[in-house]
Computed example of a mutant assay.
Amino acid sequence: MGRKKEKQGSLSEQLNQDVVSQLQVKKAALKQQADKQQELERLKRIEEKQKREANKSFEELLNESDLDWKSFKH
C-alpha cells in the first residue's frame, strides 16, 4: 500500500507542476501581450502629437516660443 501512496503523491505533484508550468507560460504570454499593447499606445500618442504639431498655425507656434521677440527689435 505504501507504494500506491507514493505513486499517487508523485502523480498529483506532477500534475501540480504541469499546471504551474502552464500558468507560468500563460502569465508570460499575457505580460508580453500587455507590453506590446503599451508600446502600441505609446507610439500612437507620439504619432498624434506629431500630427498636432504639424497642424499648428504660425500664431500658435509663435505663442509657444520661449524667445522674447521684443529683444530682437532694433
Rank of each mutant, 00 (worst) to 15 (best):
Q8V: 08
F58L: 15
E13V: 03
Q17E: 15
K27E: 01
Q14M: 05
Q37W: 05
Q24C: 05
K26V: 08
A29S: 06
L15Q: 06
L40V: 14
K73W: 11
V19D: 11
G2A: 11
L40D: 12
K44N: 02
A34G: 01
Q50M: 15
L62Y: 15
M1P: 12
K56N: 07
L23D: 05
N63R: 02
Q33F: 09
S71C: 11
K73P: 00
A28L: 10
K44V: 04
N55L: 12
K51P: 00
E59K: 01
E64L: 14
E48I: 04
E47G: 01
E59P: 07
E53F: 01
K36N: 13
L23G: 01
S12A: 14
D18A: 01
E41G: 00
F72L: 13
Q24H: 05
L15V: 12
Q38S: 03
R52M: 07
R3S: 13
A54H: 09
I46L: 14
Q38H: 10
K56P: 00
Q38P: 00
L62E: 11
V20S: 02
A29P: 02
A28G: 11
L61P: 04
A29E: 02
N63Y: 03
E53A: 15
Q50S: 06
L23P: 00
K26H: 09
S57F: 08
E41S: 08
K49H: 13
E39I: 03
A54E: 11
S57P: 00
Q32P: 03
L40W: 07
K56D: 10
V20E: 12
F58V: 14
R42S: 04
H74I: 13
S21L: 07
